[in-house]
Computed example of a mutant assay.
Amino acid sequence: MLGVFLDCTAANAGAADLPKIIYVRPVPNNDDVLLQQGSSGVNNAAKLYKMQASTLESQATRAGRLLQLDNAVKQGAKIVVVMGIEFKDLLDSVARQAPQTRFLILEHCIDNAANNITCITFREPEASYLAGMQAALTSSTGKIGLIGASDTALRQKNSQAFTNGARAAKATISIHEPLWVEGPQPFNDPPRAEALTKTMLGDGVDVIWAAAAGSNSGVFKALTPQSHAKAIGSGVNQCMQAPGKVLDNVEVHADSAIILAVGLLTNGSTAQRFDFGLKEGAVALTALGLDAAYSECDILRQRPVLQKLREASNAIISGKLKID
């Protein structure tokens, strides 16, 4: 028994000696899929790179987030990971006071940031281009469109890539002007997204890229009575939310991006920005993924279209196909 006790004590001591990676959530635990990917990414990175992972949940206030950032530093984190625009105005001052800690923030890069802040960006336009191709190739009316959350510079890039992909696949395709949810909760306003979808359907659009995260359920609801209209989801696999109505999805794999970034940092990188896309598996179409067969995405019924998308994806990865 004494030997077992000593072995357990040694194991616990060994775990305690591992460098710490701490994930600071912007809000208490909820069902936000992207925030859950943050937890998954940090936990899996810790396993791969022999670190000790933990999560700190912030109260949904500036003071609450600042408190947990400070707590992560006090707990001796080697790497602190955050997701969400809520941290953009907080992180720089905290980082400058904790030069021994590396801070990793997804998407929301900070101008003239402290040297110990690394930003992860995603080459979303690569997958947006493929979504445009898919929409054009599957439309029976020859009219497609995009409903997004908010009209920002990043979303405009995705919209332009969607247009470029559609026109590359079918030069005669008609593309509706993008419609934006906007308002105080652009990523979580299904009624507004439903109204915009009905407008677009009334204009003859029969394939819509729903690029509005949690608002997308409104898009799917509007499609339900339609016999022909389809959607392409976004963020994660949304095909199961509206079986038979969702062709595919433009996915962002924040968990994979975190694992890649942590690996680079632990191997000595001091880069202040990592940019990940199709090649790194950080963005993708659901139907081209390893588990596509279980996705319930409607595009799986159209193998010739899938083959064209696969060829285009490979060409983008190899550099043979430029999406601009």
Results as ranks from 00 to 15, higher is better:
I258H: 06
A46D: 07
P19H: 03
V207T: 04
S234T: 14
L247M: 12
D298I: 07
V81T: 10
S174G: 05
L2C: 05
D151L: 01
Q160L: 13
T9H: 08
Q75H: 05
L90F: 03
L34Y: 15
K320R: 14
V181R: 06
A77L: 04
D255H: 00
K20Q: 12
S217R: 12
G14A: 14
Q37S: 12
G14F: 11
G183M: 07
Q52F: 13
Q185N: 15
I85G: 05
A212D: 14
A11H: 10
F274V: 06
A11Y: 09
I110C: 06
L288T: 06
L67P: 01
L260A: 08
A63D: 15
P225W: 10
P304W: 07
T141C: 07
T163G: 00
G235W: 02
G148K: 01
S215L: 01
Y129A: 09
M51Q: 08
K47Y: 01
A261E: 04
D298K: 10
G132T: 13
A98R: 09
E280Y: 07
L67R: 14
T197G: 06
L278Q: 12
G3A: 13
A287G: 08
L91C: 02
A77T: 10
E251W: 00
N115H: 02
A166F: 04
A72F: 01
S93M: 05
P19C: 03
I110S: 03
V250M: 07
R62Q: 15
V283I: 07
V33L: 13
K50Y: 04
E251D: 03
A171R: 13
Q134Y: 04
A16P: 05
G84Q: 13
D89H: 12
W209E: 11
A254D: 05
E182D: 14
I79T: 04
A16I: 02
P99M: 11
L247G: 09
P243W: 03
D189L: 00
I323H: 05
Q59C: 00
P186T: 07
L247W: 03
I232R: 01
F220R: 01
Q36M: 06
E86K: 07
I175Q: 06
G64I: 02
K322V: 05
S227N: 10
L288A: 08
I144D: 12
A127C: 06
K198N: 14
G64P: 06
N267L: 02
G277E: 03
T199I: 13
A16C: 10
I22M: 04
N314V: 00
K157G: 06
K47V: 12
V250L: 14
A114M: 08
A72S: 10
A13F: 11
S295G: 04
D31L: 12
A135N: 05
P178R: 08
K322H: 15
D70Y: 12
